[in-house]
């Protein structure tokens, strides 16, 4: 019966980010969510647990104390317990720092595991680094961009998508995978799931309980809003609208 670790991040929902004065990012009315692809990671961990006839799924997330909501959200998606690695300074961590923190927590607090599942990329940074970095820090095999996965006899078999097709690979466990969104359809937690989530164990790990220094390697010199706005003329679907649409196409000069 497998023990599976699912790594997920509680992120700003980018839909609510506004362009503030002078191109600054305006976070004043944002909401938060579990990253889209991290939901696939959690779902896959849960499915592999169930396919393995039991076992457990341990969620791990690194974030500020405000991410507590994300821990409960994660638990409502079928995980059995969670490690919440939290500190006010864990706000804009670089992927290298996040991977180092995750590595220490997993190494020191999860003595035995078969698989670690990460998303293809986080929804905010989409750096696609934390998974493979974590595998290296833990010294375990890593298979990224997995669209199909099975575990049997202490090994995994995965279909990994690359530019020129699909590579079917095998690796010994424990190993780490990062999953693509089409590997599964994440469940939408119901009321019961949410209620149950409140009863599941959460182990909070504080900054001073960790020994690493977790220094960053790069400096974010600026983070500015990009503007995609255009004139946004809306036309009706009637003959006048169609005529104007086709006229505008012609005026754009690309068609005759």
């Amino acid at each position: 019966m497998p023990t599976i670790v699912a790594c997920f991040k509680w992120v700003v929902d980018e839909v609510y980010i506004r362009r503030g004065a002078g191109g600054a990012l305006d976070f004043s009315s944002v909401d938060y969510k579990i990253g889209e692809y991290d939901r696939n990671a959690i779902e896959e961990a849960v499915r592999q647990r169930d396919a393995g006839g039991g076992g457990s799924v341990i969620g791990v997330t690194v974030g500020t104390p405000e991410s507590a909501k994300g821990v409960k959200d994660g638990l409502s998606r079928g995980m059995d317990q969670a490690f919440f690695v939290s500190d006010p300074s864990f706000k804009d961590l670089e992927p290298s720092q996040t991977a180092a923190i995750l590595a220490e927590v997993i190494r020191s607090r999860i003595p035995q595991y078969d698989l670690i599942a990460c998303g293809e990329g986080s929804s905010d940074l989409y750096a696609q680094q934390v998974g493979p970095r974590l595998a290296e820090l833990l010294g375990i095999p890593c298979v990224c961009f997995v669209q199909k996965l099975s575990i049997e006899g202490g090994r995994l078999r995965a279909e990994r998508r690359v530019e020129d097709g699909v590579e079917v690979v095998e690796a010994p466990l424990p190993a780490l995978v990062t999953v693509l969104p089409d590997i599964n359809t994440p469940r939408i937690p119901g009321v019961r799931d949410t209620l149950m989530a409140g009863k599941k164990p959460v182990i909070t790990v504080k900054r001073d309980e960790l020994t690493g220094t977790f220094e960053g390697a790069l400096k974010t010199a600026a983070m500015t809003a990009s503007s995609l706005e255009r004139t946004g003329e809306k036309l009706a679907a009637d003959s006048a609208g169609i005529a104007r649409f086709v006229d505008s196409l012609r005026k754009s000069g690309v068609i005759k």
Partner: peptide, 19 residues
């Protein structure tokens, strides 16, 4: 690089080698 799905542009500086 892009961040927040493309809603932001992140500028990074590396002074230590290698990057």
């Amino acid at each position: 690089r892009l961040a927040y799905g493309g809603a932001a542009i992140q500028k990074l500086a590396a002074s230590a080698a290698p990057v």
